[in-house]
Design a protein around this nucleic acid. Structure first.
Lengths: 219, 219
DNA sequence: GTTGACGAAATTGTTAGCAATATCGCCAGC
DNA sequence: GCTGGCGATATTGCTAACAATTTCGTCAAC
């Protein structure tokens, strides 16, 4: 006899379960407003209810899950207004990172970034959305890594997790790449030229434009 | 015989315990690097070990507690470098809030802020550090409230909690008020005049100066 | 004197079960 | 037909006990 559920692989520890659930929420496997019944999740992922409980607590601090006393947990639904706020905060934080990155980028990292710029141009040229989206993520991650700002990095990561639904939706928008490509190139150029003010401003403008796109798409 | 510990009042729930422990860490009752043994805390605060466990998990997500698998939890010790990073992130975020506050402040709120400015001047004039420090906190809180940026507010609050040790140390510095007072007044003035750019820049400069003071005090 | 193995004690990780609370369906009364 | 109580069920909150892991002291061997 085969198991009823194949998702339940083995016994997950509390910390593993946090990662699994976070990933499930971010990937959209668990949708906003969906109820998260402790016993069901324990069954589904093959963990004890106590561990599910701890995981839900942590995810609620991260802002991915909403808990109400005695009434359980649900996947938090982020409104458009909230997504805009989050994008503005990200703009401020990533602008800071871009500034720091421009100040301390090395030759090797600089060459790496310029290669990425070329990849992005090519992806757009041949209309490969998938590749462009991946490059986009890599670019933001790379700049944050070069900036070496741990606090900002952790904060941005958490915020990205909350707004991921909108990012996803945005990447599918028709004319989007032709708007964002020049912005991305401007950011890379400024960072590589050690132009701190320029990098900061270019990043801020880029994320302002993201905010505008979110505003436009859901109005 | 009197009880060995009088702190254990009653049975605390998990959510209450989080607040109690957070407060204890921020107030310095539990010092950095101090080990947090689950059984001891349960005993001390009159809660079950399970609830202590959940509370420590949540506080570790908040960045106040450091956990290592199978080796327990301790109060996280924030280094000077980290405090500087945190202050820079706060600078970016609070500058954003100051900008938004300048854009949407009402007449009533404006009058309130100007009254606070007068209070601060008077506190400095009569050398009342305590009062000035309280006004300082109120000012930052007020501007964040007026800005109505929930995401930024939550993020700033968390970061403040982590760096509170340095804030405290800073407030006791001798010449500090004479440096920060004009900055505070400039912020208030710009916000009340609906000068968004000015408010943002004034706040950024103020927190840059805080970063400088931290840098100087611990070198 | 130092090193390393061994075992006891301390501490964390996990699980199952009980108690408390909220939710839902049902039925009487208006 | 609608409203409001009432009991059954579903679900969360909590606790105590058990299992696994790490830490620390002891002691023998070199």
């Amino acid at each position: 006899m085969t198991a009823v559920r194949e998702t339940a692989s083995g016994n997950l520890s509390a910390s593993e379960l946090v990662d699994v659930l976070r990933s499930a929420i971010i990937r959209g496997e668990l949708v906003p407003k969906q109820r998260l019944v402790e016993a069901d999740l324990a069954d589904e992922y093959g963990a004890s209810r106590g561990n599910v409980r701890v995981a839900l607590s942590e995810l609620s601090v991260e802002g991915l899950v909403e808990r109400v006393q005695n009434r359980g947990a649900r996947v938090r639904a982020v409104s458009v207004d909230e997504a805009l706020e989050i994008t503005e905060v990200r703009a401020a934080l990533e602008a800071l990172c871009a500034r720091k990155a421009a100040e301390r980028i090395s030759e090797a990292e600089s060459a790496d970034l310029r290669k990425l710029a070329k990849e992005m141009e090519e992806a757009v040229e041949r209309g490969d959305r998938e590749a462009y989206s991946l490059c986009n993520q890599r670019l933001h991650a790379r700049i944050i890594a070069v900036s070496a700002q741990k606090t900002a990095e952790a904060t941005i990561k958490r915020l990205r997790g909350q707004a991921v639904r909108f990012q996803f939706q945005l990447a599918r928008q028709p004319g989007r790449p032709s708007v964002s490509l020049p912005q991305h190139l401007a950011i890379i150029d400024a960072v590589c030229r050690h132009d701190a003010d320029g990098a900061s401003e270019a990043m801020r403008l880029h994320l302002e434009s993201v905010a505008d796109a979110i505003r436009a798409s859901n109005l």
